[in-house]
Structures are given as structure tokens and as C-alpha cells.
Simulated scan of single mutants.
Amino acid sequence: MVVVMDGRAPAEQVQAVISRLEECGFKAHPIHGVRRIVIGAVGDRRAISSLGLETMPGVERVVPIMKPYKLVSREAREENTVVRVGNAAIGGDGLAVCAGPCAVESREQLLEAARMVSGAGAVMLRGGAFKPRTSPYSFQGLEEEGLRLLAEAARETGLATVTEVVDEYSLNLAVQYVDVLQIGARNMQNFRLLQMVGRSGKPVLLKRGLSATVEEWLMAAEYIMSEGNGQIILCERGIRTFEQSTRNTLDLSAVPLVKSLSHLPVIVDPSHATGDRKLVGPMARAAVAAGADGLLIEVHPDPGKALCDGPQSLTPAQFAALMEELRAVAAAVGRAA
């Protein structure tokens, strides 16, 4: 349930409601909106009627939430959540683009990519230091050296940095170097890892699982938010279907659907969704038109020599041209880019 406090309720009244909830075994999560404070409460639904919350000073109303995901739902927070990372704002009026190579391969490769994407208008730099690969013989990433290079690129360009964490070891290293922790599709239902990134205090980019339903995706976000971390960016990256012409099937209908169900920002990864650089531009434009708050795009200085996902990576020139096209689409749907 959510307890909606009166907009003029002082801090003492808010704390009294939180204390009452906790006394009765509920886990309380204050959510500060523009006009009022809402307290999300997770616990035994049967006990709601006996709490007497409606009669407490400062309480405007109590709203039961029927969906299995509570804190990430629109019922818990009507306003859009805006995740702010450095100079980037994901979920606001603007379009936030995160770009860079699939994997950090070398200092020269990453710095060149960072300079190029920054110059074209990206606000975040992506780069994998730990690479979960299908084959154990594929490039697995530079690990801590890759994280150091991401931090160096951030210092030079001012870009916020995003990298994937795959376990407790990589998480403990990544929090020391990068701005946003990415949970990849393979780990969307690694519930222990979700809880750990929830406790990290860092913003989290949560990719949809390979075959996950929208509800399962939002429940994964609920794991993170239940640990007190509301800085969550949802990323649609395509799901696995019987179609084999593309790497995955990009579910763009999920963008407006999830935005109607949840207050969290939603971005789209057209690179992993299609696996083909020829399709990245059209799907990126379509994602913006569908209401995506941002994009996650792979860009490599020389895709032909990439150690990971070269066929779906744009060249810097292609990315710069796409950014110009995205500005036009964003303007047409009332967004800045």
C-alpha cells in the first residue's frame, strides 16, 4: 500500500506514520514528490485495516496496491522519477544518450570513443570491463584495468560512466570507479545481485531479461528499490523469440506500457536488440518516437577490429549522423536532445 501524506504535513507527522508502520511489521519507504510525500509500505495486506492510518494527523489517504510490484508502480509515485548522474538526467524532458564500446579494450580505444561520443552529444559513456560471454574462450574484459580507464575517460570528457557488474567481486570494484551499475539481461533475476546493487547507493541500469515478461522485469526493479535505492533506469534490449533474422526482437510496445505502469525512466538498447548496425538507427528513432527517455548505443572507433559485438557497433561518424536525426525526432515528440 501507499500512504499519501498531506502536502503541508510536517516531518514529525511523516515520521509518526513511518513508526506506526514499522511497529506493525511493515517496511516503510518514504518517496518525496514535488507536491507531497508518499510512504510506500510493504507487509501483510491483511493488517492494513487494523493500522488506523487514516485517522493519523497528516494522512490524506491510504491506497492499497494490488500489483505485485509496489514501490516501482505508478500508484506509489505519480510523478516521473528522474535519475541524475553528473550532468545527465534520465527521465526528464530531455533525451539522454549513453554510448561507447561494448567492451573496454585499450586506453586508446576507449578515450577515442569517449571523445567522439561526447562531441556528438552523448551524456554517458558505456563500456564493459567484465564481459559475461556465451563462450568461455571469448574476450572476458579487462576487469579492474578497464574500470580505471573508464574513470580516466570520465575525468577527461565529463561523461558519466556505465558498466556491467556480474557478481559480488565485480560490484565491489565497480563502485569505486563508475557512476552507474548495469545489470545485464542474464542477471535480471539474479536476486542476490539485485539486492547488493540496491544497497550500493549507486544508480542502477536494469536490462530486461532475455525472455522476461514486463511484470518480471518490474519485479526485478522492485528488488533493487526495496533495498532503499530508487535510482533505477529500466532498459528494453529485446527479447528472445522464434525470429532469427535479428539478434533479438525489440519490444518497443514495452516502452509506453512500462511508463504507464511505473514511474521509473525507460531507455532502449537498439544495438543488442538488433545485432546489426544497419538497424540501429531506425530502431533508435522509433524508440524515441515511442517515448523512450534515452538510448544505449554501441560505438567503436573501428568496429571491424572490435573484440566484442563489432557487427552491431556504429562508427563515430555514423553515431554523429544518428544524433542529428534523433534531435529532429525528439523535437517532433516534444523532447530536447
Rank of each mutant, 00 (worst) to 15 (best):
I90A: 04
G92M: 03
D93Q: 02
G94L: 00
G100H: 00
P101L: 00
P101A: 01
A103Q: 10
A103Y: 15
E105L: 11
S106C: 01
L110K: 01
L110T: 06
L111D: 15
A113H: 15
A113P: 14
A114Q: 08
G119N: 07
G119M: 09
A120G: 13
A120C: 09
G121M: 00
A122D: 13
L125W: 03
L125F: 05
L125D: 15
A129S: 13
F130T: 05
K131T: 15
P136K: 01
S138Q: 14
F139K: 08
G141R: 10
G141P: 09
E144C: 15
E145T: 14
R148Y: 02
R148L: 01
L149M: 14
L150C: 11
A154E: 07
A154S: 12
R155L: 00
A160M: 08
A160E: 07
T161W: 01
T161L: 00
V162I: 15
V162R: 10
T163S: 09
E164F: 05
E164G: 13
V165S: 03
V166H: 00
S170E: 08
S170A: 10
L171E: 06
L173D: 11
L173N: 04
A174T: 13
V175Q: 04
D179K: 02
V180P: 01
M188T: 15
N190G: 05
N190Q: 10
R192D: 05
R199L: 11
G201W: 01
K202W: 00
P203S: 13
L205I: 06
L205D: 04
L205V: 15
K207P: 13
G209S: 12
L210H: 12
S211Q: 05
S211G: 14
V214A: 03
W217K: 07
M219P: 06
A220S: 07
A220P: 11
A220T: 11
